Amino acid sequence: MVLERAEITIKRGKMDEFLDVLVEQAIPLTQTFTGIISFTALRGEEDADNVMFLAEWQSIEAHLESRPEPAHAKFRELVLPFVSAAKTTVHFHSVKSVRPV
């Protein structure tokens, strides 16, 4: 499993419109991405214009395979017009997971 973290800043005054597009159109597309396990979108507490995407993938290869797919391209097409800045997207693999009893 690989966890992808992408962080974006939404243009001022566009968050409400962005969230509508994200929830109603973009997030449903993620369910069709090759190799996706889960997708979560989070809004910043300290900076409400920031959004983080966390995507769990079966592997980095599966993620790369999904990038040229029409649904992935449509996701970017829907999201990018609202973005004013983005941090470098990074990928992590698990070292160890535990859950409190």
Score class of each variant (00 low, 15 high):
14 K>L: 11
5 R>T: 13
97 S>P: 06
76 R>C: 07
24 E>A: 14
62 A>L: 01
33 F>V: 05
78 L>C: 03
9 T>S: 07
22 L>H: 09
25 Q>L: 09
91 H>N: 09
39 F>N: 08
11 K>D: 04
51 V>T: 05
53 F>W: 14
73 A>V: 14
31 Q>N: 12
12 R>V: 03
6 A>G: 15
49 D>S: 15
46 E>H: 13
6 A>F: 12
15 M>G: 06
74 K>P: 01
101 V>H: 10
72 H>W: 02
41 A>P: 05
74 K>A: 12
101 V>M: 12
58 Q>A: 12
5 R>L: 15
3 L>N: 08
20 D>G: 09
63 H>P: 01
75 F>G: 05
87 K>W: 11
49 D>G: 10
84 S>Q: 15
74 K>G: 00
49 D>F: 11
44 G>D: 04
42 L>K: 08
68 P>G: 01
57 W>N: 00
63 H>K: 00
15 M>Y: 04
97 S>Y: 11
82 F>N: 10
59 S>H: 04
3 L>I: 15
101 V>D: 13
69 E>N: 03
3 L>C: 10
11 K>C: 01
49 D>H: 13
10 I>Y: 06
27 I>M: 09
67 R>Q: 13
38 S>V: 08
96 K>R: 13
93 H>I: 11
39 F>R: 03
71 A>K: 03
28 P>L: 05
2 V>L: 07
29 L>M: 03
66 S>T: 08
22 L>K: 05
70 P>W: 10
17 E>Y: 10
14 K>F: 13
7 E>R: 15
50 N>T: 14
90 V>D: 01
43 R>N: 11
21 V>Q: 01
50 N>E: 13
41 A>I: 10
4 E>Y: 04
2 V>Q: 06
31 Q>T: 07
92 F>Q: 11
88 T>V: 12
101 V>W: 08
62 A>G: 03
48 A>T: 13
22 L>V: 07
88 T>K: 14
9 T>W: 13
30 T>K: 01
80 L>F: 13
46 E>M: 11
17 E>S: 14
29 L>W: 01
100 P>W: 10
13 G>C: 08
10 I>R: 04
4 E>I: 03
